[in-house]
Amino acid sequence: MDLTTRESAITAVPGHTGNARKLRLAVILGSNREGRFGPVVSDWFLSHAAEHQDFTTTFIDLADTDLSAPLSSRPGPAVRAELDKVTPALAAADAFVVLTPEYNHSFPAAIKALIDWHFVEWQAKPVGFVSYGGMSGGLRAVEQLRQIFAEMHAVTVRDTVSFHNAHAHFDAEGRHRDPAECDAAARTMLDRLAWWGLALREAKSARPYAG
């Protein structure tokens, strides 16, 4: 598959738009490794998210950001410019999906940097996961991320999508060779996210969350 270069970290995904009632879903591609497989998986997932009636979707590609600078409460202009690529989309989102590979039994450093540079943006919002890797399918990375998002006052949904030995399951055009099971898993996870996203949005409207 041709991995096209995106001009910015945030891309509006065509699909269900223009309806204020819809939940705003931010899909985060966490790998910034050269030659990464992530865009194949993210393109597959984004096509499913675009079809879901409850969401309008924004795509955040961490390969287009550089948040590797030391954490600071007063970031300089260069870091602020990088944060400006992603922070508004995180703040506006009602729900998140983190798409992560597994590197050395964990998740990429780019995801941790994104999490650590933010706090209130994650609070009282649901997070789902799409993972890929070898035999584990990235599930060890997901379990570690659950602990971190709990510290951010976020709610992670139980249902995930994982691709074990991911390269073998997609053809040269990025199509899954046997999509029935993973398509069903994506629908279930999106349904769970929609339930939590709506419930938490309504709860915060009635009573602001004091994190």
Rank of each mutant, 00 (worst) to 15 (best):
D66N: 15
V41A: 09
L83F: 12
R33V: 10
L83R: 14
L67Y: 00
R74L: 10
S47F: 01
W44V: 08
R74K: 15
A12M: 03
E34H: 13
L46E: 04
G35V: 13
I10M: 09
T58N: 07
P75W: 14
T5H: 14
F37P: 09
G30F: 06
S31Y: 05
A9Q: 02
K22I: 01
T57C: 02
P88W: 00
P88R: 12
G38E: 14
R33W: 03
R36M: 04
T65G: 09
A50L: 08
A26P: 08
S72K: 05
V86F: 01
V40M: 06
I60M: 03
F59G: 04
G38H: 02
H48N: 06
A89C: 04
H16Q: 11
A81R: 13
H52E: 00
D66W: 10
L46F: 10
P75T: 14
D54A: 12
N19F: 04
N32G: 11
V40S: 07
T5L: 10
L90G: 12
P77L: 10
E34F: 11
V86T: 03
A89R: 00
L46C: 09
A81C: 05
A81S: 15
A20T: 15
A81M: 01
T65E: 08
A9G: 13
S31Q: 03
T65Y: 03
G30S: 11
R74F: 12
K85Q: 15
T87Y: 05
R80T: 15
G30D: 03
G76E: 09
F55S: 02
T57I: 02
A63F: 06
T56A: 06
R80N: 14
E34D: 11
E51G: 06
